[in-house]
Design a binder for these strands. Sequence first.
DNA 1: CATGAATGAGTTTTCATTCAT
DNA 2: AATGAATGAAAACTCATTCAT
Lengths: 219, 219, 219, 219
Amino acid sequence: MVAKTLQASDGRTARANEKRRLRRAHIMRTALNLFGDKGFHRTSVSDIISTAGVARGTFYLYFESKESIFLELLGELFGHLRDNVVGVDTRPNKPPIVDQLRETVRRIVRTLYDNRELTKVILRAGASSDPQVREALQRFEGDIEHYISKALELGIRVGLVRELDSAMVSSGILGAFKQMAGRHILDPGSAVDPAVLTEQILSYTARGVVADHLLGAFT
Amino acid sequence: MVAKTLQASDGRTARANEKRRLRRAHIMRTALNLFGDKGFHRTSVSDIISTAGVARGTFYLYFESKESIFLELLGELFGHLRDNVVGVDTRPNKPPIVDQLRETVRRIVRTLYDNRELTKVILRAGASSDPQVREALQRFEGDIEHYISKALELGIRVGLVRELDSAMVSSGILGAFKQMAGRHILDPGSAVDPAVLTEQILSYTARGVVADHLLGAFT
Amino acid sequence: MVAKTLQASDGRTARANEKRRLRRAHIMRTALNLFGDKGFHRTSVSDIISTAGVARGTFYLYFESKESIFLELLGELFGHLRDNVVGVDTRPNKPPIVDQLRETVRRIVRTLYDNRELTKVILRAGASSDPQVREALQRFEGDIEHYISKALELGIRVGLVRELDSAMVSSGILGAFKQMAGRHILDPGSAVDPAVLTEQILSYTARGVVADHLLGAFT
Amino acid sequence: MVAKTLQASDGRTARANEKRRLRRAHIMRTALNLFGDKGFHRTSVSDIISTAGVARGTFYLYFESKESIFLELLGELFGHLRDNVVGVDTRPNKPPIVDQLRETVRRIVRTLYDNRELTKVILRAGASSDPQVREALQRFEGDIEHYISKALELGIRVGLVRELDSAMVSSGILGAFKQMAGRHILDPGSAVDPAVLTEQILSYTARGVVADHLLGAFT
DNA sequence: CATGAATGAGTTTTCATTCAT
DNA sequence: AATGAATGAAAACTCATTCAT
């Protein structure tokens, strides 16, 4: 009987936990959509709860504040991205470097595609008034630039990358990525093939825009 | 007497107009500084008027709203930039193309340097709450991308630029520029030499990051 | 079988009742401590249940509201006090009147000492928002003043107390007691000897502050 | 003409200032009445503005917060009281000491009478949740007790006051005063003659309650 | 009996904009 | 033209209480 009681209790708890999880996810998804449509700042908690169909208190039952929900979304995207970035392996019997890079870029583009709304929110949240949010975004971008920068420096050492100012160029790479993604993934008007986007990002970042016969001019 | 009155009136009007012009410019400059320091959203009309030393009503005498002052600043920067962009001239007895491009980039960087505060405001206003502001920013960027795109297409036709998706790559170029400027012009911590910045933007945009012996791999 | 069932049921009921009683007391004691630390208003039901380790609903199973728990605490202290107040017995072969009074005051001070937390809560709840609570406190104090007043009137009749306005002076006595207790029993900083406090209350109440040779001046 | 303009300007400013002053006073009086009726905590800013007939923003134009209006009221009463307390002068050709004390007590009672509502608010605000308010009240009472304490010690040195624990007894005196005032000035039911109240406070504080022939028992 | 998720009325405060003087 | 007092919609957040499980 004890066992039965425990089982029942567990069953109830499990069901309740599942409901909680679903509700939390529902509120989060609602917030995500609204943030994407109107921006983080223009979306009020009132908007979120009326759209999600929950009471005011319920929102604060699941999230500490409006900022915290954004921060959590940010962490989610960051996690997705980190999972999809793989360093280049230069050992002999590995795939060509270009293919490895292409694969990483492809996966990142894919991730942004799969998380269009999330990406939109984060790309558009640049000028949030909340200091915590701003700081989190700064760190997010800073981390990415730092990562790219380290990769460039390694590339330079092993002769894959030409001599360049890694700090500046890593900013450029991130910026190009952000803008291309913002325009060509998120803009509802232009449905671009991810493969094309990948290729364009890769080639622009790798070899720039100049025709081959002019390359000598840029030293 | 009518003439005299008119003359006197004209003199008075002229003086009054000059005063108006100065006052307007003073409020605008004050707003610019505050937007630069605290961001558009965090700057209140109260901040502007108390710093500028004018009455609340006076602000609305010169500007329709807080947004309108921002919109005007945006137009100002756009004008400055347009004045400094010069198309490449490919005729025989002109300076080498690379030098021409370098000169244009140099002048844009210079303009952003000279209008640091203005640039900061606009780069950081990405996610403004106001739809009008957002739309204006979108159009601003759209215009620039369109301009770059046209230039790229011309370049492709005359064989200066390799085959590429001009719409996408122009996004990339603008994005790289924005991010590099944001990090390395506006960040008060890193005082980068404009010449270095110019060179890095130019070389990254033109020839990417790859070492020469690998260029063949990116077709 | 009916008897047996009833018997079993009784045993179960008794055990359950005991558990209920304990749980109720536990919640009450927890609330008391929190009220004492942070004040009635600053203590939330959430504080109480999380400290007591019971569920939210359980709280309302045992108490009607946050106010009701306070009201009950109030009644408790009142009961303690009533149990310790003993009227003065003026019959010939009884202890001297002063000693009798001293004994009562001593017991009251003792009771407040022993119920420091409870006393603190009630003394500090003076301006509670809840009308019911306010009314209860008013009645509590009114009862005490009435009791003192009756005692004074008796004293006047038997010649132990000088002619005075018993309603007013009883207010004064209660007020002096409250303030002295608040400052010198409850303030964690000043650990005053109960005996000293008793003596000071007694002498101040009985003979005021004036030096003997001046007493004639106060008629 | 300059003079005239200035005059007009002054006239306008003066009139505007007067209106401001009146409006401020109106809001303050409204708040005072509401605080007196329902207590500080139970009175919301919404109550104040709807009763005063001003807009929400207007309240915050004149007062920083709900607390600040209370703090200002507190300072007001404190100022009134301080103005009416006069030290005893023991030099030969001055009025009898008892008369001097009576005069001070009379003036304090009078002040409380004249500021019934204000007194009520402050006496009932004991348990405010706001830490700033609580601290201000604590300091208010602390200052008064300290003042009484110093007066008692002086009295002991010059032989006017018997040996006693000045810290404790000053608490008692303040407490007696508070309670008597609370019951017999503020209670709308009991309209007590201020002169009677003065006399009772004075005699209770000075000579206590005991009949003369028993005084010897309290040493 | 016990639980704890859900509720929503209520709180204080901000700030862009208007308009009588 | 200039002023600045007044406005009120809107925001984020709290918490005592209820009720389905």
